[in-house]
Every structure is written in C-alpha cells, then in structure tokens.
C-alpha cells in the first residue's frame, strides 16, 4: 500500500488530494480530499501515469537569435523529462524554421515529436 499527497490542478481551487494505492490482487486507487470527479481522475492519473508537456530551446544558426523555442507535441511521461532534455540539447539546427516544424521525430520512442514553437 502506498500513499501520495497531490495538489489537484484540474481547477483553481487546488484541492489537497490523498491517493492511496491498494493491491488486493487487482490495483485499486482511493482518492480522498477531492471536491469533484475531475479531482479523482487527476489523482489517479498522477499516481499511475503522470505526463507533461516539455518546453525548452535548441541552438539555431542563421537566425536573428541563437536559440529557438521548442516543445513536445503532446505529453510525455514525467519520468522521461530529463532524458528528453538531453536529446533536445544535442540538436543544432539552421534557419529558416517555421512554427510547427518537427525538430526531433518520435523522441525517445514515445511517439511524440519535438516541434518548433516559433518561426525564425
């Protein structure tokens, strides 16, 4: 049995959730402290498979700045954030780039691309 305390961010209320994981043959999650069903979903997701959009920059040549902002086109597992940063930091591109251009395809086999978030 493990417990985790999580602040819900489904809305600005910020409920203090306690998510309890019970293993009685099957996985069972009990969420307390939530004031709405969205809090329950959020609590379970955070406990089982937390994901995030990662934003950063990559080096760019032939542009008016030396960094171009990028993001994951979708959420990646939270545990892969620092590995993904390493991949992003290896890249160096050259302008012109359009917003939405793919900078890294299928990063770390997640099925998620890293895309440029501005034209430069």
């Amino acid at each position: 049995m493990e417990k985790q305390n999580i602040i819900c961010i489904a809305c600005p209320l910020g409920c203090k959730l306690e998510v309890e994981h019970k293993k009685n043959g099957i996985d069972d999650y009990i969420v307390t402290g939530n004031k709405c069903p969205r809090g329950k979903d959020y609590g379970i997701k955070e406990m089982t498979n937390p994901t995030r959009v990662l934003t950063s920059t990559v080096k760019i040549k032939n542009a008016h700045l030396c960094r171009i902002p990028v993001r994951t086109k979708g959420e990646i597992p939270k545990g892969l954030i620092f590995k993904c940063m390493k991949e992003i930091n290896k890249v160096e591109i050259s302008g012109p780039i359009k917003v939405g251009d793919i900078i890294i395809k299928n990063v770390l086999g997640t099925g998620i691309d890293i895309i440029a978030t501005r034209s430069m």
Partner: peptide, 10 residues
C-alpha cells in the same frame, strides 16, 4: 488549446 508564448504571439 494550450500554446506556448511564442506560438500565441505568432
């Protein structure tokens, strides 16, 4: 939708 600052500006 959820955009970054530069995307919103663009």
């Amino acid at each position: 939708e959820e955009l970054t600052g530069p995307e919103y500006a663009e």
